[in-house]
Computed example of a mutant assay.
Amino acid sequence: MKIGILACGPMAETFARTLIQMEEAECYAVASRSLSRAEAFAREYGFTKAYGSYEALCEDPEVELVYIATPHSCHYENMELCIRHKKPVLCEKAFTMNAGEARKIMELAEQEQVFAAEAIWTRYMPSRQMIREVVDSGIIGKVSVLTANLSYPISGKERIMRPELAGGALLDIGVYGLNFALMHFGTDIERMESSVRMTDTGVDAMESITLFFRDGRMAVLTHDIYSRSDRKGIFYGEKGYIVVENINNPRSIAVYDAEDRLLKQMDVPEQISGYEYEVRECIEAIRAGAKESSSMPLSDSVLVMEIMDRLRKQWGMVYPREEE
């Protein structure tokens, strides 16, 4: 399938390096607001076409799937452009800036009968099913609590610190913690509590989020933009606990009993980068005529945005464009 990429930043580079190694995909077109940057990207990664505008890429009849790697604040308009040009789209997380935008994209994709999906890669990875099978096996008994953390020293990045780019920890890394909890504990949330520390620029820097589920389980999530955490996800049960190494790209799953003895350890399959799973599922879905991903349906993307909207409301955090 001929793939087009909007934007030429680090995520686009990782995506391109992945495509090069996939038999199912072709590095076909790349677009940037700067034609020279798009041309340099195309030369480096072997793309056939380079465009100096996103519109030009969407007008190319050969493009079969567009990957969007722009800042959060641009996702809505970029997806709208693609969908109106009948281009299937895979958009980086966070899906949009807020739930209102996410709902509009879902409605537009349905109206235009165009495939659309969010590129939250952990949703597509084989580790998701591996974790579920271990938890559901009962090896640690009834699970009551899940904890997950994800922190990176990324406060020096412009897109993180600028509210007009929908910056902050929540939409960039908090989305992984939330998805980890929802994937494994479901979506029936009874209530939600949180604490936050803001930056001088007005975005969230550090946060703790507690989700209480109607079935009695609880998920505690922490994220920040100043430090490097161990990135573990841990499930606590009656007979022991399960440790997932790196919720952002799981590497292994270890099971311990109540005396901290290792019972079982599983490594996830070797991968190119981890991006290949989302690309492969999108290609298969589009070929089959599906209009959304089974691993990350649009309703789930909307739900995650609704949760993040509720958190930002608790914090009094509004992006400039939302005030317009």
Results as ranks from 00 to 15, higher is better:
H223E: 11
V302K: 04
G168L: 10
A40N: 05
C27E: 11
L90C: 01
M266C: 07
K93I: 03
Y236I: 11
I173P: 07
M79I: 02
G46Q: 13
P163E: 12
I225P: 03
M192L: 15
I307Q: 01
N149V: 05
K87L: 04
V134T: 10
Y256F: 15
R197G: 00
D230C: 08
S229P: 05
S32Q: 01
G202S: 07
L81H: 06
G156F: 06
F15Y: 11
R228A: 13
R43K: 13
V203N: 04
I120L: 15
G100W: 11
S195V: 07
Y176P: 00
G186P: 05
L150I: 08
Y45C: 05
P61S: 09
A69Q: 09
G52W: 03
E101Q: 12
Y277H: 12
G100L: 12
T70V: 08
T96Y: 01
E101H: 13
C82P: 03
R128M: 01
Y45V: 03
V114R: 03
A117C: 08
C282P: 04
E107T: 09
G186A: 02
L90W: 09
D300M: 12
N248W: 12
A29E: 03
E24H: 06
E23W: 00
S208R: 08
S137M: 05
A69C: 15
N149R: 14
L57T: 00
R231P: 04
E59S: 08
E59R: 13
I131D: 07
Y124L: 06
K49M: 12
L298I: 10
E284D: 13
L171F: 08
E323V: 09
L298S: 01
V279H: 00
D204K: 06
G316M: 03
Q265V: 13
V63S: 04
C282K: 01
K86Y: 04
P61D: 00
K157N: 10
I225V: 09
K87Q: 00
K157W: 09
E92Y: 05
G240F: 03
R43D: 15
G167Y: 04
I272Q: 07
S144T: 15
V135S: 11
A258I: 13
C58Q: 02
E55S: 08
C27T: 10
T14W: 15
L57H: 02
I105V: 14
E284R: 13
